[in-house]
Simulated assay, not measured.
Amino acid sequence: MWNTPTKVQLDEIPKLYATDFIPIKYKKIFLHFFIGGCDWYVAEYDGDDRFFGFAILNDDFEMAEWGYFSFKDLKDIKVKGIVEIDCDLHWQIKRASEIERIVQCRCGI
Results as ranks from 00 to 15, higher is better:
M1P: 15
W2Y: 15
N3Q: 05
T4M: 11
P5D: 00
P5M: 00
K7Q: 09
K7H: 07
L10T: 04
D11P: 11
D11M: 06
D11Q: 09
E12A: 15
E12G: 07
I13M: 08
I13T: 04
P14S: 00
P14G: 04
P14T: 00
P14C: 02
K15G: 05
K15A: 15
K15R: 15
K15M: 08
L16Y: 03
Y17Q: 07
Y17M: 08
A18L: 07
A18Q: 13
A18V: 06
T19H: 06
D20M: 10
F21M: 08
I22V: 15
K25D: 15
K25E: 15
Y26A: 09
K27Y: 01
K28P: 01
F30C: 01
F30K: 00
L31H: 01
F33D: 01
F34H: 12
F34Q: 04
F34P: 03
G36P: 04
G36H: 12
G36A: 11
W40S: 00
Y41L: 10
V42F: 02
V42L: 04
A43Q: 08
Y45S: 10
Y45T: 05
Y45K: 06
Y45H: 11
D46E: 09
G47T: 07
D49H: 02
G53S: 12
F54G: 05
F54P: 13
A55N: 14
I56W: 03
L57S: 07
D59K: 13
F61L: 13
E62T: 10
E62Q: 11
A64E: 09
E65T: 11
F69K: 06
S70E: 08
S70L: 09
S70D: 02
F71Q: 10
K72W: 14
K75D: 08
K75E: 14
K75N: 13
D76R: 09
D76V: 03
D76S: 14
I77R: 13
I77E: 07
K78R: 12
K78Y: 03
V79M: 14
K80L: 12
I82S: 14
V83C: 13
V83N: 14
E84H: 11
I85K: 09
D86M: 05
D86H: 08
D88C: 06
D88E: 01
D88A: 02
H90A: 00
W91S: 10
W91A: 03
I93D: 07
I93L: 08
K94Y: 01
K94P: 00
K94R: 14
R95P: 03
R95W: 01
A96D: 05
A96Y: 02
S97M: 13
S97W: 03
E98S: 08
E100M: 06
R101G: 01
V103A: 01
V103G: 04
Q104R: 12
R106K: 12
R106H: 13
R106F: 12
R106Y: 12
R106V: 11
C107Y: 08
G108W: 02
I109E: 13
I109Q: 11
I109K: 15
